[in-house]
Design a binder for these strands. Structure first.
Lengths: 346, 346
DNA sequence: ATGCAATGTGACAGCGCTGTCAACAAAGCA
DNA sequence: TGCTTTGTTGACAGCGCTGTCACATTGCAT
């Protein structure tokens, strides 16, 4: 029952002693504060490296009244989305020696705002990243802004003054629709995304704009409501494929629903892409793992996560507050991934 | 440029004042320490509730020399696996007011042990959860044990003395194989899992045991090496389906590889399950999203994450150290999910 | 040289909590 | 009844760091 020789971790004092300076100077170097002479800085950095010193987060957090953590808020996203995003965010955090706290919440929770604000306060979370559909909750955005909590949103509605990392959803949907039209389709159906997500509207708008600009009418019954999950996609597909004159192409607002369309087509022995072309949105791994490969819009989720975290961390580094109305919007490029599900054979 | 009316969060002093006791007593109640009179405890709890008090983690961490965080170590798992597991772990952490720190590492990193130990020390992580294949790194397990860092493993090799949450991998593979045999197959091929994972061996063993006990020989060339990812599954499937006398059933060691088999079959116009039955392992969402639905073994990953976190937190609560050789192993039930990919039609 | 701002550095308090230990109350025992 | 034992509570130090502010040093113009 040896009580573990918990050899004391190296502290700022050790570093200060070794470098022959005061702990405050070490603190300055660690926190990249100005007004440290280059020579001093080097000495300290050498000592840090030699002792392999890493500041104690609890002590830092207590003294500075912050946690050196940012929060990631999400509501039941697809595992692929979450894993990718998280990986990007984590990377950015790691670079800046920040921690990441996860907080799964519910968009429809009536106490959402209070829950989040209280969580941030009591954990001294320094900033938060919001993912859809939370990015579209005006009350939440307002509360965060008003409470002076630095935040960034992923793929937001673009409204609100939080910095954002996003793609041009409408343009992406527009181009995908054009791809279908150019491939020769005219009977194109669309499965809408979850109405809670602002992006759903943008994707729909892009679709409609392409149809209109190309002079292709949208047949009655060709706009179906979906909710971004497989089951809703399946239902929508089922209705579309039961239509007396069914579409020759279906554009679903995300990959899960597109996969469901292909699933339904398969089980009705409808050939994809021969009799039905299918397109999705997101480029999740799923799109490469089903057959035929799913044509979709690639969103660099991981990169967006990284960017968004960067935005929050920059805000933190800069003003130590979300005061100055920085309205950064990082728009990253999407890419059409053309795969088998829209292949035009003949 | 208002400096944010960061209304001071409620502290232990506020609670103590309101309850008319010393802060130490509040601390006792919060930490469920013994020797507090019931009446006192109630007073304190009332005050806590009324003020909506939650202890400051940084202060707690600093004073108690621990972080009230556990770490989740993983090496590039599938997004589905990670998301599920994490969700379970997070839930358990939440219940006990613990935080979760994520740490993606690399199994093949030569400094793995040092990296992990140092991370745990410097972040004062209180305990860790390991996921495959890290669970199979003897040096890592030994280091954690020797350094007295409470840990639990998910689906471990069962060796080592860390508590574990696992399923009977071999039995699951055995039963799945029997399912294929009973369905009338005799030409059954097997795609092995990543050799770094101990579970791969168990699944293979279960397969072989079933074949042997049913007196079904394994044809030459019917054991293929895979690495748990789609690409490797695709290569293995490709080789198997190119065989002069190809299998009528393929059992892949996980869903990603099984999906790849189905993909390959589709692209060669081989009917699944008519000409080729396919079985996987894990029951990821993918298995329901491809066509035909994938027969697979359901592992309750989320529940296992919850359990594993519970094991670590219990250790923490109990001995405040990993001293007493607790060798808990929670074995959870698996379930055969029979879907279209092994349907026996005729 | 001399003065004065700009720059660099350190002493020290204290962040909110837990561990230690001492004080005191209640209960058990002879 | 006095004494020990056990249970309950509080005073206080200090965890490792940052913020504040005072002081030391430098650069530059005079």
């Amino acid at each position: 029952m040896v009580k573990g020789n918990h050899m004391r971790a190296v502290t700022i004092d050790d570093v200060a002693k070794k470098a022959g300076v005061s702990i405050k100077t070490v603190s300055r170097v660690v926190n990249r504060e100005p007004n440290v002479r280059a020579a001093t800085k080097e000495k300290v950095e050498a000592a840090i490296k030699e002792l392999n010193y890493r500041p104690n987060q609890s002590a830092r957090g207590l003294a500075a009244r912050r946690s050196y953590m940012i929060g990631l808020l999400y509501d039941n996203p697809s595992p692929n989305y979450l894993a990718n995003l998280q990986s990007g965010v984590l990377e950015a955090c790691h670079e800046k020696d920040y921690g990441l706290a996860l907080n799964p919440v519910s968009f429809h929770d009536p106490d959402l705002v209070e829950t989040v604000v209280h969580w941030v306060r009591q954990s001294s979370i320094d900033g938060v990243i919001l993912t859809p559909p939370l990015t579209d909750s005006i009350p939440l955005l307002e509360a965060l802004s008003q409470q002076n909590i630095p935040s960034a949103v992923i793929s937001s509605r673009g409204t609100g003054d939080a910095p954002a990392a996003l793609i041009d959803e409408e343009e992406a949907a527009y181009e995908m629709t054009r791809h279908l039209i150019i491939s020769g389709h005219r009977d194109i159906a669309f499965i809408k995304g979850h109405p809670d997500h602002y992006a759903s509207g943008l994707r729909e708008k892009g679709f409609l704009r392409a149809m209109e600009s190309e002079g292709v009418p949208v047949a009655p019954g060709f706009m179906e409501q979906g909710y971004f999950d497989f089951a809703s996609g399946q239902e929508a597909a089922s209705r579309l494929l039961d239509l007396p004159k069914r579409p020759t192409a279906i554009f679903a607002s995300n990959d899960d629903m597109a996969a469901a369309v292909i699933f339904e087509a398969h089980s009705r022995k409808i050939d994809v892409p021969g009799e039905l072309a299918v397109a999705g949105f997101d480029d999740t791994p799923l799109s490469r793992q089903i057959w035929p490969g799913l044509t979709t819009v690639r969103q660099p989720i991981r990169a967006m996560g990284h960017q968004a975290a960067g935005l929050v961390l920059d805000t933190l580094a800069a003003g130590k507050g979300a005061d100055e109305e920085r309205k950064d919007v990082i728009q990253v490029d999407f890419e059409l991934m053309i795969r088998g599900s829209t292949a035009t054979s003949r």
